[in-house]
Nucleic acid binder design. Structure first.
Lengths: 214, 214, 214, 214
DNA sequence: AATGAATGAGAATTCATTCAT
DNA sequence: TATGAATGAATTCTCATTCAT
């Protein structure tokens, strides 16, 4: 086989796979953009198809159960890229506060960037018990794995039991998410982002102390 | 047991029964109960009618715009019975903490009792800009009036500007609501109510200090 | 029995019967006014009741079959007051044209005053075969009786057969109604009433000649 | 026999059949046929779907606003095929009368063939101000363009001002339509079509003279 | 007699999902 | 594979009519 034809095959296969991922991203973007504009339940799959200029069949090819699949798979994807355990491993008594800030900032950016998705997730959780459970399960899993990694590489973490650490991470995660969601989608708590992040970091620090006291 | 549930059990032989207020309450109860079970979007007006054993026409008689009207009017009603300004007027340096506890408890009870409504409110706000604005407006109004009353009858409140006081009340209201909603509808933050309320009260106290520092 | 108590009885009974007729007229007026504003099928009996500030029960008391009854009975009533046979009886070769004018004017005034009713009648006729037939029948009857009266009192009319006379009256009636309805409800044919009436009178005269030629 | 009726008879075993234009025609035919039978208001979109043996979704795919869209688009379509300006261009003093006959006949055939549509149009115009205005506007436009073409190609038409010519065409169009509608849908004016067409042609000729006198 | 709450069939419309091309 | 026409159950909402008060 000549180099040339090989090239074509590789190119086309590459191009195809990129097309596939691009289409999936296009669906994500369009779906969450529309939700932001008109709310979750007014955003239909047909709507998404028209707005993204792809066919409804394509959406169902990649997401056979429709909207719920889009949300589920985006959730999985977003958990994969969340938090860099490398940084956390370097935690010591001096930089705890920096790491909390980092944690808060990470969630804050995520919420701002994915406002539509966060709306969708909450809406979908209400009407889909399975998603609700999967969601909890995944979060639990994620933090369990994270904690296990951290306890391997950092002495500070070893002094706290695995269970307790997982609990505290999940607690912080929920706390910050709760407030971020309310701030972005229901009613603003602060008028500038900086003030808000500052407050959240302090709040998390306070809650951490509270949590370990009890 | 309320009168209308009794009515259902006794199943009067009359084709038409007339008890306006009871029917309205029955609609509220049924609607929010169903939302709890299956989520806001999957709870249709026909569903409510069938489950409440009244006709769909009756629902539209009392709530001409359907679901959105049920939520709007329940919201208005619930704001009317929220917080007793009498108690707040007696605030002094010694009982501030008691009052915060009271505030938190009030909201906590409300959320537990009206979980379905709280789900509905958040869902509806996403897809109904008008409700979103009305909701904000009402909260602002409510706390403005409350603050004006408090500043008339209590010296402690006079030392803080009206605007600042309104802001701080709305802030506390939002903060507690955000966490309560997440705890009850997305993922639990504490395993017992007592711990949770304790935490919330401390959190509010902390946030208050933070708020006045800045 | 004293004069006084008699007075009360008579008064009240009179008042009652006047109330009844007033209510019926109120229903007519409100119904046709609403039709004018929003079209026939968007005008519901409930609507009429609310707008007229009477109860829906009252409407069904006087008009047991609802809208269709209102139209039917108004149609009957309007035929009773249409055309004064006295005037027609005085017809002779000189004043034929005046009588045609009178005929046209009568219908014209009726249409302008009862535009809502005329819309309703046409709408109702489409979906109610019975009304359609009743309507035709009544018109036939009305003109038959008119013609019989006229042939008794006026020599000119005797020279034409009863059937032919009835036909010609119905023809004129239909012709003028068709054009009036279109002019008022679909698209104007003339920009002033005077021009329009003039045209109609000439048209009727022309059609009459045409009719008798064939 | 048209293709789609054939299709129905043959009852293909396929669940989905695809023939866009035929489906649109089938919707037109079924809708207007049902209106003829039971009147405009009683003919629902669901009715049409069932009667045409297509799904309700298909109707809303082609006519997103339902009934009103069917009427609007049929009206547009029917104006496109109305009157052949070629023939009118050849008008001279000798064949005016022929052309009037042609005009009348064209409208007559249209009304007979599209009786259901004509009922629907008149009903819809009453409750839809937009359709009412669009309808007027389209007619005005149509005759304006026609007149401009005629004045370019025929000397006889140049002697009359454009405005006057447009007015006279619209006047004739309305006059004939008014009478045709009444004859077909309310009450017959003549017992045979021939007599009726004869009368209408004479009437138009008379009205034309009348119109130019004033 | 008068009222108007209550009924429920049915109309308009949406939307997740399937399947022929 | 990709497309999008087609489906039809489900939803919102209206309205003629009945009946308890």
């Amino acid at each position: 086989m000549s180099n040339y034809s090989l090239n074509i095959i590789m190119k086309s296969s590459k191009k195809f796979s990129r097309n596939k991922q691009e289409k999936i991203n296009l669906i994500y973007d369009t779906f969450f953009k529309l939700i932001l504009k008109q709310g979750y339940h007014k955003t239909s799959t047909n709507h998404v198809a028209k707005s993204a200029k792809i066919s409804i069949g394509t959406i169902y090819k990649y997401f056979p159960k429709g909207k719920i699949d889009i949300i589920r798979r985006y959730f999985e994807k977003s958990m994969e890229t969340f938090l860099d355990s490398q940084q956390l491993s370097n935690m010591n008594d001096e930089n705890v506060r920096d790491l909390l800030n980092h944690f808060v900032l990470d969630l804050f950016e995520n919420h701002k960037k994915n406002k539509g998705y966060n709306l969708a997730l909450r809406s979908a959780i209400q009407s889909d018990k399975i998603l609700h459970d999967v969601h909890k399960e995944k979060i639990f899993h994620f933090f369990k794995e994270l904690v296990q990694k951290l306890r391997k590489s950092n002495e500070n973490f070893k002094q706290i039991s695995e269970k307790k650490l997982v609990d505290v991470f999940i607690f912080m995660y929920n706390l910050v998410n709760a407030i971020l969601y309310h701030h972005l989608s229901i009613m603003e708590l602060f008028d500038t982002d900086d003030k808000f992040i500052d407050y959240l970091s302090d709040l998390v620090a306070f809650s951490l102390q509270y949590y370990f006291k009890t």
